[in-house]
């Protein structure tokens, strides 16, 4: 069987000064799966995401994204990689001086030279795809609500039909209804577009609802497994995470949904 991993992290070591964040961290993300990354505050979830994206240089180890070395790539290869990866930052990170449609057109303009009407059409399609109303395209990010900004950010991330989608706390700051709708949107898009998704999240509902596998950051490493496997893990942090009161509530609500 082929080893079909889109992201391979091996022996990763990151540190800031004397503070070690990751030590000997190994992680694979398979093609077409949704991987959730959880961990306590300060365990380096976002650092891991940024390392994979090449925004932070680790102290040691290997990171491969789509078969290419993410740490020592040339500019051209890095550009090729950036076309194939879409990233949604926490608050969307939309360019505030551009409208939503222009934001979505930025990667198209940069990587492919397309005619303006065609780009407008593509942008309008992406706006519809993420469930924004058509008139949202002409608005500026500051005129949108938090949930709409996230959707607009997602539309920009999907602008070039990437293979891997990185999401940094996609449901943080959304109301439960908005968060559930966003989870469903991600799941639907993931299935329709055949995406591999890497989600950094705190949201137990998201983990239960859409993640195929979960990576838990503990002791500078990750423990990867399905939800059931983590529920049996004796590690104290994982125990308290997956058996705490909030986890129980999340399980209950998903059980209720399943039984209805």
């Amino acid at each position: 069987m082929i080893d079909d991993a889109v992201i391979r992290v091996a022996g990763l070591r990151t540190q800031f000064g004397s503070q070690v964040i990751h030590e000997g961290l190994d992680l694979n993300v398979c093609r077409g799966e949704v991987l959730g990354v959880v961990g306590g505050s300060g365990t380096g979830k976002s650092v891991l995401l940024r390392t994979i994206l090449g925004l932070i240089k680790p102290a040691g180890g290997r990171v491969e994204v789509l078969g290419a070395d993410a740490l020592s790539v040339s500019d051209a290869a890095h550009e090729a990689m950036s076309i194939r990866c879409g990233v949604l930052f926490q608050d969307g990170a939309l360019f505030s001086s551009l409208t939503v449609a222009e934001n979505i057109e930025v990667p198209m303009r940069e990587h492919f030279h397309l005619a303006q009407p065609l780009m407008n059409e593509l942008a309008a399609m992406k706006i519809g795809m993420v469930g924004l109303p058509p008139e949202a395209g002409t608005k500026f990010p500051s005129e949108l609500s938090g949930g709409m900004r996230k959707r607009a950010g997602l539309a920009r991330a999907l602008s070039l039909d990437p293979e891997i989608l990185f999401l940094d706390e996609p449901t943080a700051g959304l109301d439960p209804i908005g968060a559930a709708a966003f989870d469903k949107l991600i799941r639907d898009l993931q299935q329709s577009l055949g995406l591999s998704v890497f989600i950094v999240t705190h949201d137990l509902d998201t983990l239960i609802a859409i993640c195929d596998r979960i990576a838990v950051l503990v002791d500078n490493k990750v423990r990867v497994g399905t939800l059931e496997e983590h529920l049996r893990d004796p590690h104290p942090w994982i125990q308290s995470y997956f058996h705490g009161p909030r986890a129980r509530a999340a399980f209950d609500s998903s059980a209720i949904k399943a039984s209805v």
Binding site: D3, R31, A80
Partner: peptide, 28 residues
């Protein structure tokens, strides 16, 4: 089946995403 064969298109990939031709091939 190796990745090599898979990329060469001897078998239809699971998903239509063999887009390695985007730019140059130096990283492969």
């Amino acid at each position: 089946m190796s990745q090599r064969e898979w990329i060469a298109g001897k078998k239809t990939p699971l998903l239509p995403i063999t887009r390695l031709w985007y730019r140059n091939v130096e990283f492969c």
